[in-house]
Design a protein around this nucleic acid. Structure first.
Lengths: 212, 212
DNA sequence: ATATATTTTGACATAATAGTAACAATGGTA
DNA sequence: TACCATTGTTACTATTATGTCAAAATATAT
């Protein structure tokens, strides 16, 4: 079972977008949709939608299209939703706190169950309903709790070491906000969010636009 | 002048990474580097580095490689750095505050000069050294200040309207953290940061990994 | 109820794009 | 001067996206 072929990063980027648009369609009461109508809405080609979805199975029906609810649920399953994913955040600074407050994650099954910092001033502080713990307590916490995802929200000087502690204690998914590349082994998945790079891409595209 | 061919998004994603790695090399005192050595460091092919850089000009020298400082500065120029980019943040919630506190942006010339919110409880609050203003004052602020980038850090219900206000008042670059697609005209550049989608990609890749 | 037209998928063929390899040209180095 | 390292460029390969169409299901007409 499972997909026969490798899934390209381009497809991986589109999957959550399909999911989001299908969710919006459900909210507006749409029950079925053709690849063509979805393509108009999402500004991609219908062919691409059909091809993307067929990596995972034939969810549509000739002459009818796709049942919005079914497709939404199927893509949810493909994305690994529909179960609880526990997260710990390393770093209780502004970014860590913002992540902890973000409501959307919980709606999708991503539960933040621990926050850690090395700064005495942060330890003991309550962020929402979770208390910031001493980073020294992280290994013990990981052993006692089923943590899937470790979010790295600290400066890069400490980031690698903390990522290694996470991995040593069984965490296989790293959500990395620090400005460095983490190579933690073939079985560890790293998803990078680098806001400075994002700003630079924006700036680059603006610079290009001006030249035209 | 300017690049002859369209620059692919793949290249746009790599440019800030080149910049980051070159910065790190400068910090460690490295003066010159070959595409091969850089390729080992960055885990891409040397061929790709040479091809990427040659979109913008021949910065290297046969038999020598690239001068790290020169290349760093050239890529900086290409990315539109080396000048001040003023930003306003719409939304002074946790995410907006985290962005405002983030120090790295300023180091790269991205200056946050205004924050806006519609919530009475936020208005007047000081985030670092800037005061949160009433969102009603945004159009006037945009007319009086040279704002290049508008960051959207509010829920999607209000996001489109606020983005339109930014664009109507001359902002051509939108940094969008809201969970919707903004289509604001051909000359408006939108850079999306969708943290929920980022988590879903992580979750998807983890689900794939388990199947193997 | 049945036949016919229409819609739309899934699969495959084709086109476009992106990445890698190869190598002549060229400046640095011994 | 001769050799070596390494680029910039071109050719090639791989990947990704798009177009096409038979097959299948729905919708419509009779």
């Amino acid at each position: 079972m499972g997909p026969k072929k490798r899934i390209s990063t381009a497809v991986i980027h589109r999957l959550p977008k399909y999911y989001r648009h299908l969710g919006e369609l459900i909210d507006t009461g749409v029950q079925r949709i053709s690849s063509r109508d979805l393509s108009l809405r999402m500004r991609v080609t219908a062919s691409q939608i059909r091809q993307d979805l067929n990596h995972f199975g034939g969810f549509g029906q000739q002459g009818y299209g796709y049942n919005v609810n079914t497709l939404y649920n199927e893509i949810g399953k493909i994305l690994g939703l529909g179960k609880i994913h526990n997260i710990v955040i390393v770093g209780a600074g502004n970014l860590g706190q913002a992540l902890a407050h973000y409501q959307y994650f919980r709606h999708r099954g991503f539960h933040i169950i621990g926050m850690f910092d090395k700064d005495e001033a942060q330890i003991g502080k309550k962020i929402g309903d979770i208390e910031v713990m001493d980073v020294d307590a992280l290994p013990a916490f990981l052993k006692e709790n089923n943590v899937e995802i470790g979010a790295i929200a600290i400066p890069k000087s400490e980031a690698r070491r903390m990522a290694e502690i996470l991995v040593e204690n069984g965490v296989k998914q790293i959500w990395n906000f620090a400005h460095l590349d983490l190579h933690l082994g073939d079985d560890v998945i790293v998803e990078n969010v680098n806001l400075t790079e994002s700003l630079m891409r924006l700036s680059f595209r603006a610079a290009l636009e001006k030249k035209k």
